[in-house]
Amino acid sequence: MKAALYGIGVGPGDFELMTLKAVRIISETELIAVPRTDEKEMTAWNIAKQAVDLSTKEILELYMPMTRDAQMLEQSHQEAAEQIIDQLKQNKSVAFLTLGDPSIYSTYIYLHNRVLEAGYDARLIPGVPSFCAVAARLNVPLCEGAQPLHIIPASYEGSFDYLDWGGTKVLMKSGKEFGKVKEELISKDLVKHTQMVECCGMPSERVIKDISAAEGKASYFSTIIVKEKEIVR
């Protein structure tokens, strides 16, 4: 197989949502690069290994801290890219496993850009985005006709302004700020338009149809869908 970095989306959690192309490329690549957090969690790996035999694969663990510290992120991204480039120099093909789709809020893209800038080949292999799987789990359409669809990183400053826009709003990255997100949805009288799924497709999946009744923190893998019209539950 051609020596290149392949950023492979493994979907949101259910290994049956992995694409045939993702399975094929993972099977054919020599090296599997896996992001690892401070808690040593390797969620994408755990999904992929249910669809592909990874027992004989060479594994490259890349430290990816869950932080917003710009300096720490810059350092970890650069170090991970350098580790991958070292493998590409040896003419190896590398599959980087990432949740959902690599083009949507994925840490992978920072490595992708660095590898390309260094003059090496890097390719995106799409996966099922979490919000598509969540809409299917909730049995609701994301958008119809001329309805716009807005993908919002809900834990960032200014993100609540987008709740006033027309169309369907998908709130991602809301886990740590779930309390504030819930308060904002209540204040804007959007609770009856809203549903949420935590860890969609994973063993710990939780469907929350009444956001106002949800207590405590939400999982990092939480996706909230806010519709224009009241949702029939």
Rank of each mutant, 00 (worst) to 15 (best):
A154L: 07
A146T: 15
C132E: 05
V128L: 03
W165M: 14
A136H: 03
W165D: 15
L149D: 14
A136F: 03
V134Y: 05
L138S: 11
I152T: 11
P148R: 11
P129I: 03
F160W: 09
K169N: 05
V140R: 09
V170C: 07
V128R: 01
S155L: 05
V140E: 14
F160R: 14
G145C: 00
E157V: 10
T168W: 08
C143G: 12
V140W: 11
P153L: 01
L138E: 09
L142K: 09
P129T: 03
P153W: 06
D161Q: 15
I151Q: 03
W165H: 12
Y156I: 13
F160G: 00
S130Y: 04
G158Q: 06
V170E: 07
G158W: 09
R137W: 00
Y156Q: 14
A146H: 13
Y156K: 15
P141E: 12
R137E: 15
D164N: 10
D161N: 11
P129M: 03
P129R: 04
S159G: 07
T168K: 02
I152S: 11
S159D: 08
A133Q: 01
H150E: 09
C132H: 00
P141G: 07
S130D: 04
Y156F: 15
S130T: 06
N139F: 00
L138W: 09
P153G: 08
G167S: 02
V140A: 00
T168E: 08
G166L: 08
P141R: 06
S155Q: 12
S155V: 02
G158F: 05
S155E: 12
P148I: 03
A154G: 15
Y162K: 09
I152G: 11
N139T: 10
N139H: 13
A133L: 02
Q147S: 15
T168A: 01
V134G: 09
L163A: 02
S130V: 01
A154T: 06
T168N: 05
A135Q: 06
V128F: 02
E144M: 14
L142A: 12
P153T: 08
G167C: 04
I152D: 10
N139P: 00
V140D: 00
L163G: 06
W165G: 05
S155C: 11
C132L: 01
W165T: 08
S130A: 11
W165L: 15
A154I: 05
S159P: 07
Y162C: 02
A146E: 14
V140K: 08
S130P: 03
G166H: 12
C132D: 00
L138G: 12
L138R: 10
P153N: 04
L142C: 10
G167F: 04
E157I: 05
A146C: 00
P129D: 03
K169W: 05
A136Q: 12
V128N: 04
F131T: 07
G158S: 10
I151Y: 11
H150G: 05
L163W: 05
F160N: 12
P148D: 10
T168Q: 06
Q147V: 02
I152N: 11
E144R: 15
N139S: 14
A133T: 05
V170D: 02
G158M: 04
L138H: 10
P153K: 04
A133W: 01
V134T: 13
E144L: 14
F160S: 15
